[in-house]
């Protein structure tokens, strides 16, 4: 430049960083102020976001509670080993004790043929029919409780095979179907939670995106004037992006509140239910880390929604 020029600001790195900070601090406060200026519509938006976040979070918690309860049910898993007829009642406890020494077996319980008949008579209601039989048709049974680390389906299958190979055991009945069904159910629910979270997350992005789009539309003149006096797209974008983050965070907080209320009102009845089943089950709420993750996700979704709108709508506004 030929003419002497004096710049009021020296564009050093430090000054630039400072300007960056000033811009961001102002956009942050300004966007927050904008949201509080229209409290009703802001609250409405936040509630929509909160519902969209609460639903998958609720399902996630249900699943987490089911999974927490599942090990207790698995403890009920037992194998019934039907003892060969050749084994007498006196040999039976010895056989049971030997089986109990296996590494993948926690404990065994032997049921002699007479006791098996008694139990059958008591539970089946076929007592009269049994009386017609001349001899006890039931075999002796050894109930085998697998060791804690042998309760997954494969280990159980292996244990069943090993027991069946034993010469004194004629047949092993492993009622695994319900364990497998439970596992499959939990997996399905897990997938369902993921899909639902994805869909409703998309919903949050769209809700915030639409809100920001309307906001941009309403402030079109302001944007035009700002561009007229030399505002960069980044400068104009910033308050809208922060607005998106605020909306996400607000919706997330509201969702946390909803979850806490639901947890509070459900844990009493659930405890009663658990006691009725004789379990010490405690309804699990969100852990602090999970709550933080929820807030972070909500903020990120809000930012994403704002970004989409800002990307498409601010560029096209040119001063007239």
């Amino acid at each position: 430049m030929k003419s002497p020029r004096r710049r009021s600001r020296n564009p050093t790195m430090h000054a630039r960083l400072q300007a960056f900070g000033v811009h961001h601090a102002r956009a942050l406060l300004f966007s927050l102020g904008k949201l509080t200026q229209a409290p009703f519509s802001t609250l409405l938006t936040l509630m929509v976001i909160a519902v969209a976040i609460t639903l998958p979070a609720l399902l996630y918690l249900m699943l987490a509670n089911l999974q927490q309860a599942a090990p207790a049910w698995e403890r009920e898993t037992r194998l019934s080993a039907f003892v060969a007829d050749a084994v007498t009642d006196t040999e039976l406890p010895d056989l049971a004790a030997r089986l109990a020494r296996r590494e993948d077996v926690a404990a065994t319980e032997s049921i002699p043929r007479a006791q098996a008949l008694e139990e059958f008579r008591a539970h089946s209601g076929l007592g009269d029919a049994l009386d017609l039989l001349e001899e006890n048709p039931l075999p002796a049974v050894i109930l085998v409780e697998p060791a804690p680390d042998a309760r997954d389906p494969e280990a159980l299958r292996a244990l069943a095979n090993a027991l069946e190979a034993h010469p004194s055991i004629s047949q092993v009945q492993l009622d695994m179907e319900w364990v497998q069904r439970l596992g499959a159910l939990l997996q399905t629910l897990d997938r369902l939670v993921d899909l639902l979270a994805l869909l409703l997350g998309l919903g949050v992005v769209l809700v915030v995106g639409n809100t920001v789009r309307l906001d941009i539309h309403n402030r079109r003149r302001e944007i035009e004037v700002a561009k007229l006096v030399g505002a960069t797209d980044a400068f104009i974008r910033r308050p809208f992006l922060y607005g998106g983050i605020w909306m996400g965070l607000g919706g997330g907080l509201l969702a946390l509140l909803t979850l806490a209320v639901l947890h509070g009102s459900l844990s009493g009845p659930v405890q009663t239910l658990a006691r009725a089943y004789g379990g010490g089950f405690v309804l699990r709420g969100l852990q602090p880390a999970e709550a933080l993750a929820l807030l972070g996700t909500a903020a990120a979704l809000g930012l994403a929604g704002a970004w989409v709108s800002v990307f498409f709508h601010i560029r096209e506004i040119e001063p007239r």
Binding site: A19, F20, V22, H23, V225, L228, V229, G230
Partner: peptide, 30 residues
């Protein structure tokens, strides 16, 4: 930013004070 523009219809923002309207070109330059 090297140009000042004046229009027939002043282009002022109705929801901001006179001060804030005038401050706009400075605010965008941090």
């Amino acid at each position: 930013r090297q140009i000042g523009l004046v229009f027939q219809d002043h282009h002022l923002l109705a929801d901001r004070s006179v001060f804030d309207n005038v401050a706009l070109p400075l605010a965008i330059q941090a």
